[in-house]
Structures are given as C-alpha cells and as structure tokens.
Write a protein that binds this DNA or RNA. Sequence first.
RNA 1: GCCUCAGUAGCUCAGCUGGAUAGAGCACCGGACUUCUAAUCCGAUGGUCGCAGGUUCGAAUCCUGCCUGAGGCGCCA
Length: 580
Amino acid sequence: MTPLVEAVETAVVDALRRALPETGGPEPLVRRSDRADYQANGALPLAKRHGRNPRELGEAVAAAIDAPDLIATAEASGPGFVNIAITSEAVWKQVAARLDADRLGVGLPLAGERIVVDYSGPNVAKEMHVGHLRTTIIGDALARLAEALGATVIRQNHLGDWGTQFGMLIQYLSEHPEAEWHRADEADPTANVAVLDRLYREARAVFDADPAFKERARARVVALQGGDEDSRRVWGDLVDVSAAAFDAIYERLGVGLTAADLAGESTYNHLLDGVVAELVEAGIAVESEGALCVFFEDVTGPDGEPVPLLLRKADGGYGYAATDLAAIRHRIGDLKADRILYVVDARQALHFKQVFATARRAGWLSGDVEAVHVPFGTVLGPDGRPYKTRSGGTVRLMGLIDEAIAKAGAVIAEKHPAGEDLAELAAATGIGAVKYADLSNNRIKDYVFDSDKMVALTGDTGVYLQYAHTRLASILRKAGAMTAPMAPAAPMSREERALALHLDAYGAVLAEAMAEREPHRLCGYLYALARAFTGFYEANPVLKAESDEARDNRLALVRLARETLAHGLGLLGIAAPDRM
RNA sequence: GCCUCAGUAGCUCAGCUGGAUAGAGCACCGGACUUCUAAUCCGAUGGUCGCAGGUUCGAAUCCUGCCUGAGGCGCCA
C-alpha cells in the first residue's frame, strides 16, 4: 500500500509542474516537519535553477496543490518551504488500511532476491566470547530484516573448524587420554567446550615450548587433512560437541541459527586445490617468496611494497583467504546468491576488499551480484579498552548473557516480588537489553558494554520498548474482543496524529535499514514509536474515551501500534512480552 | 609511510543522504501516581557540531587541508 508521504510527493510533483510548467521531473523533497505534518522543499532548488523568486514559487506551489481528500492545507513558509497538513480522515483511513493489510501494509521489495548472510562464525573447541556478540546479534537482525522484506535468506555460519590448531589439539588429546573433556557435564552443553578451551591453551603452551611436540602436531595436521580415520573421528567429535554448545547459546540468545546453517571452513577444504589452480591459470595468483599470492596496485605496506592476499603459505598449507575465495565462489555459483553480506569485525576490511577484488578478477563476482562487508566496531569494557576480564582474559559470551539476565531478574523482582514467570521475563528483558544496546548504536562505532546501564529501567533501552508494548497489550486485553469499525470522520488529536503518521512510515524505515544494513535505524524508529505512543497514552484515554467513535479510533491506533512495535522488536530478535 | 573509520551537551549516543531555532538518554534541579501498568510523563539547566578554508539560496551533513583517537598493512585466523 502507498504510504501517505508518497501520496503527498505525488501531489507536490503535480503542483510543481503546474506552478512551473517548464520543469521536467521535479524532486518534491517531502519530509516530516515539526511545523506541519510534512514540508515540501522542492520549490527552492527549482526557483534557483529557473531564476524565479523562491518565496513566490513556494506560494504558487502551495496554491497549485490539488488533493482535497488528502491535503487539508498547504502554505508557503520561510524562504519557500511548503507546509502541508493531512486531513484527519485520510490519516484515520490509513490506519484502518494498515490494520486490514497483510504485514501491516509493508511491501516485499526484496522478493525474488537470494541473500547469503555470513555471521557469528565461532571457533570449534573454543568457547564463544564477547568477540562473537556483535556479529551474532547484528547478523541475525539483518537476516530477519531481509526475510521480512521478501528475500530468500541463506544463513551461513562460517565456523572456524579447520586449520593447524586442530592438529595440535588432537595430538595433545591423544597424548593425554586422562584429560576427560568429553561429556564433562551432561546437563550443560557448553561445559565440554569450556574444558576443550582450557586444553587448547595447554596444547598451545606445549606446542610453543616443545619442538618434538610441535613436530608431532604438524604430522597430525597432515594426517587429518589426508583423511586419517582416527584423526577425523576425534575432529568430528570436537565439531559435534562444539556445535551443541553453540546451539545452546543461540537458543538462549534467541538467534535463528541452526545446524542447517553450519558451513564451516572445512566445508571448502576439498575445493581449495581447484580454486587456487583456477586463479593460477588465470594469471591472478602468482608465486612470491615461496608462497602463492594475489597482488593489488593500491595495497601497499609500510615499506611501500605491495601487500598480497596470501592464498597458500610457503609450507604448502592454505591460508584462510583461499577458504574465503572458495566460499564466495560457492555462494555465487552454487547457492545462487544475488547478494552476500559478511557481518564481520571492521578490522577485516582490507581482507574483504582483497577477497572481493580477487573474486571480481576471476569473474565469479560480476554483474548484479554484490558482495558486501558489513563491518562493526569493537565491544569495549568500562575502561574504554577492548572488553577483557579483570585478569585480562576473554569474556565468555554465556557469562555475559547470564549476567545481564541476572541483573534484569533482580530489577524485575523489585517490581513484582510475587511474579510467577520471573525467570522467563528476566531472560526476555535481559537478552532484549543486550541486543538493543548493541543494535541501537551505529554499527561501525566501538561501543562500551555496560550491563547496569542496558538493563536500566529508564531511558533509551530495550526495557523501555518492551514496557511500552506491555501497556499497549494491556489496553487491548482490557478492551476485550472488539471489531468495531473506525470512524474516519471523527476528529483527531495532536498525539493521535503524531502516532498515526509515525506508524505509517514503518515500511520505509525497514527498507532504509536494510539498504544501509543499519539496524540502529530501526531501533531509533521503534524508540520514537514508543515515545509517540507514550505521549498519546498520557493525553488520550482509550477505554474511557469521550465518545464511542474516539474509543474505536484509538483502539485501532493502539492495535496498529502494538503490532508494529512487536513486529519491529521481532526483527531485532527481541521479545515483546504482554505483561511485565 | 600508506589506507580505513571515528571526533556533536559533563557522560553515552541520534541527526532521516543539503533544509527553518542541532535532538534523545544518563546525571543534576523542580513538578505530576484514588489512572488504560508512574518500568511513565512534564518542565529547567546544558553545545564555538575537532580546527581552518571551500562549494550555494542554505552545511553537523558534500569537497580539500590540518589536529586528535582507534584499527589495518606476507606466510595467525
């Protein structure tokens, strides 16, 4: 369905053409305004171009506007702005139409598109830590958003499940059968991985200190890659146990990644020879200092020499660039992706630039296919440095989540000492708080992880949005079943108008957030929605409205607001509870 | 040395791709609860938008230079 702003744009374009017949396709430049419902700025640049007085042209445009059902008043203002007020009837009808429409009247602009979203990517045999937080949360939100706009989304969890470190770990395990890492705790799927994480560090220490072990570890890598049965079996075990731990975290976080989305580095292992051979044959990859590299004119190091993308190391092992190239070829060639989003730390920017350029040279990435690095900043601790534990260790993701939930629980218990669904509610608000804190910040910037602030009951937090939702739900619950038709001819308060016009912009915000891959735009919209609702709530009684017509209209507005808020929170991966 | 990103209120951040007096939250101060959930709301205080030029009717927004900070730049992933 057509948003009001688009209908206004059409009317303004018509008026611009009438006021200035010599103009071709004028830009109406319609925006929301605090002085009117909308303001059209299109007359100003046109006046300049055609040597007209801008104020006079603005007045002519205002006079030429002809859309009586839509536009109540149009007045020139200032240097040539046109302030536009929408008729109450058109706004009420728009609310009714959105309630009747599928998906709140939001279109499917991405229908037919296949979008691969690469996110999360934890490492096998290691615990997920704070470094996986943002890619997991942002990637999940973008995947949901793309789906809501009609795209076919293929989630790819690019696990770190291959490489020399596994030779090291498997060798260490074989030499230490007493290390009981397996099924350390049946009740906690993450416990096994916690043990593995520790064993890995032990193995690393031995690896660095003992040349003989180093040699045995290298031999183990060769055996593993050569398909040695014992090695493969242990490796497979490591992957399974780790995947179970990841699942537990995704489940806890409410992230839509499953076993079906696993596509770790090992997936591409059998393709590496072919990929690299193809690049050599095409003259794209060349040998340098014993390694196989791709060079770029515009990438140089501190010494001014070109810096390569390293496909194969001098020792014959493939680097992760080869894996990424195999992956991009697979995603375009086999998965038929129209677009690939890599939700990966901003520090990888140069790497992806090189990978994409190589894929382009090879002809895999061409035409309408788009590969995009979606970078994000670092999670910082209270000291403004990358988040670490007090002793300098990595911060476990599960610990972080548990802490946020515990804090949310304490806060909720204060409000509702006798609440029965406390645990469930604590999880919904704690996780919502963590996600909202992450998603509401501009993706590219670093941000400070402050669990006290994010579960705070006041301010721009996930809790505020959830609370607004419970108030909406509460009104509807008390109103009972109601399907009374709206009364478009009834008057409209300032707060009703502000809320309705805001709700009407939902689809545009989703499209914009997707186009820019910036979930914080949706967060900002939802926060403004909650505020617009609260303003309405304070001033306009719904259940005790002054007339039946007002009550019916307000209930419709409340329904639309609740559905929009719940839908938007859903896209962010945040629960929308009915009671708190 | 080169490249990327950032610099907006005391603190944490928005600012819709150039529009009218730059907005929120936190903190601080003053108000509002026999109510549809006060987990809220209203008001007050608080800014040379890093600096200097340029582009034009108009710049926090676009361009150039500089300053500051973070990150990246061959055999780790």
